[in-house]
Design a protein around this nucleic acid. Structure first.
Lengths: 135, 135
DNA sequence: GCCGAAGTTGCGAAGGACTTGCAAGTAGCA
DNA sequence: TGCTACTTGCAAGTCCTTCGCAACTTCGGC
């Protein structure tokens, strides 16, 4: 896998644990560190939670994963290549929906034009009520 | 103060501590529970941190304050009547800027039209780089 | 293919932020 | 003024995340 380069280029190593964490994030779509740990442990029970935390941080520095705040507190991790959508978090039922980045294009443009603010659309969650809960 | 009604109507009481917490939130604009406690203690040192947490929650239920996630984890509280702006959080310098809700109007409309999602604009922070850090 | 330096892991402990249980105190209706 | 139910303060507890450190593994070089 090409991920190897991203790591090596920064003097980092590709360990089995690191591969497992990365593939867990890719499989899960979005996941908290706890969920990643659980997923990894399904096949490799010995892996320590702090290793998961450290690897998520490392992989984020390298650019292979990214985190988003979905609100409740902790961060949620995504594989970097999947970060092409916004998160619509329902304040009622807690579900997390997706919307393409394009939906925010004019909003981002507004902020750039009026405030010089360069919005990172992938990093924030959008709160509100999902279609199901609006009813 | 009319706040009394909001509380009484739900069978709650207006205690000195509760008033202090509310006015601290109003003075501070946006503040974490810790900051609220500090502000309250400046005049009334005896107030317990858990009282602040409990009162913020109570005041939120009543609708006098509201919380927003600015990202790092903990919630930030605002007086409900001041929640007329978005938060632009700079991922570089950490500053929190404001923008009127109107800036997101078309974005909100998009989400409503395309996904039936009813966005609560006041609840989410917008991440990115502020004008100063873009340079 | 073997070596050694430096990055990594596992584990336990520490830290911070918030929550909970409970007895004592107090607001506010009667 | 009395009572009852809501509140407070305090201490202990929980949850999530980070740290320190010794043992271990990766990987470039010999």
């Amino acid at each position: 896998m090409a991920d190897k380069h991203e790591l090596r280029d920064k003097g980092l190593r590709l360990t089995p644990q690191r591969e497992l964490v990365l593939s867990a994030v890719r499989e899960l779509g979005h996941a908290t560190p706890e969920e990643v740990a659980e997923q990894v442990r399904a096949t490799h029970p010995g892996i320590n939670l702090s290793t998961v935390y450290r690897n998520l941080e490392t992989l984020e520095n390298v650019g292979l994963v990214q985190h988003t705040h979905l609100g409740h507190g902790g961060a949620t991790y995504h594989a970097a290549e999947e970060l092409t959508h916004l998160h619509l978090v329902c304040s009622d039922c807690g579900s997390v929906g997706d919307a393409p980045i394009g939906a925010a294009a004019n909003f981002v443009q507004n902020l750039a034009d009026d405030y010089g603010f360069k919005t990172d659309v992938t990093h924030f969650a959008v709160y509100g009520l999902c279609a199901a809960c609006v009813k």
